[in-house]
Design a binder for these strands. Structure first.
Ligand SMILES: [Mn+2]
Ligand SMILES: [Mn+2]
Ligand SMILES: [Mn+2]
Ligand SMILES: [Mn+2]
Lengths: 220, 220
DNA sequence: TCTTATTTTTAGGTAAGACTAAAATGCTAA
DNA sequence: TTAGCATTTTAGTCTTACCTAAAAATAAGA
């Protein structure tokens, strides 16, 4: 059964909000994510329930089904592959790709995605460090932790961002934080959770807890 | 003013049917081209008329306006650039690109198209030999004539196909006709208009008048 | 427990884009 | 000039995806 563009967007939102299908999601949460009204979401949930990509119990939120997870991951795969294409081949900045990928992800052509994947050399991560599911929907997730959860003197490497908004990414560009950067926690202020980070063994960066919470790293 | 995907498709159809805006187009012609019913076309013509991309006089068909021509050419530009991308970069065959380009042409992002154009090295023609309008909608058209209009002993080069259907393109692949091939008319049968063509000074090709009429060449 | 507050659903509407059937218009040939 | 045919438009429906307002269900606090 095929999903419309709107249905794909809803399903993807539910997948993300449910943390990859590990918890149920409320109507209002979906409404906020999709930027639509709760009444519209109720409508759509009934339809997605009929198509059996979610399990819908009125008034109790939704859970994504195995089939739904598979579908959502297909869309996410396409989204992320297109993001890689835009950055690697068309010189888009990492803060410019999201809206365009949001449209491109709905193009229907298995051959296109297969060829794109191969053309990009089977990338494993998108420009924001998020893993790209394979064609069966399998994701090889790395253990990642937010910078604000690291302790003083710990070292690691930035591998992803939690917030992909243009505003946040532009800020990271400005201060010189990027995916792949080697980091070390120099200081952590008890009072407000702000941090001092050494980047690439040369540059010192001060950041609020809010910023730190949106940068993901692996420890080393 | 922005056009919907459906409106872009209609406008493009009208542009093509009107021979680039040189003649008016009937409701039924549009219906046949879009594969929809005349009643649906009437509806849409009213809408396109309101948006002033066509001039619509009930019962007398439509003429595309200057603004409409510009919009249609933007869509055609995007369609053909994507076709080049699919063939040159993703190894699609020339008979596999049309449907996908029909979707890709509606992605809204001027930056995307500008970058794609540059990435493809500013191609002037698509995989079927059709010219790619520049960003202002200017097309540098080559004088082309159908093979069936050439006389015995005339030489030339295949530059485009009139019919881009998969069936026709696959047939050309099979018999070894391709864009860029050097040709010479060896014989032309009075009775049915079928022709004998020498390709690349070595291969002889027999083709019906129907086939010949769908291959475009420049004389030399 | 009972009464509010919050969340969610339902009811009813709109707009786009398709359809069928019926009516209107234009064209052609007698 | 007009009857009949072909073309086109209108009228009335349908589906998808959104909306607002009102009703219903659930959750929370006294
Ligand atoms: Mn999307
Ligand atoms: Mn991303
Ligand atoms: Mn199209
Ligand atoms: Mn083409």
């Amino acid at each position: 059964m095929t999903l419309t563009t709107a249905e794909e967007n809803y399903l993807k939102a539910i997948y993300h909000l449910s943390n990859g299908g590990t918890k149920s999601v409320s109507t209002n949460d979906v409404a906020a994510e999709i930027k639509t009204k709760a009444a519209s979401v109720s409508d759509m949930l009934r339809k997605l329930g009929d198509k059996e990509v979610i399990e819908y119990r009125k008034y109790y939120g939704v859970n994504i089904t195995e089939e739904g997870k598979k579908r959502a991951l297909q869309t996410i795969r396409k989204h992320r592959l297109w993001e890689v294409f835009l950055v690697e081949k068309l010189q888009f900045a990492w803060d410019e790709v999201h809206e365009v990928a949001e449209e491109l992800e709905h193009i229907q052509s298995p051959l296109l995605i297969q060829r794109l994947d191969s053309y990009l050399n089977f990338p494993k991560f998108d420009p924001h460090g998020d893993p790209i599911p394979d064609e069966y929907g399998d994701v090889r997730a790395r253990p990642r932790l937010a910078l604000n959860e690291m302790d003083i003197d710990q070292s690691g490497q930035i591998v992803a961002v939690k917030d992909s908004s243009a505003a946040f990414l532009k800020y990271l560009d400005k201060v010189g934080a990027y995916i792949g950067a080697r980091i070390k926690v120099l200081d952590k202020v008890e009072f407000d959770g702000s941090m001092e980070i050494l980047v690439d063994q040369k540059k010192t960066l001060f950041m609020s807890k809010d910023v730190a919470a949106n940068i993901l790293a692996i420890q080393s």
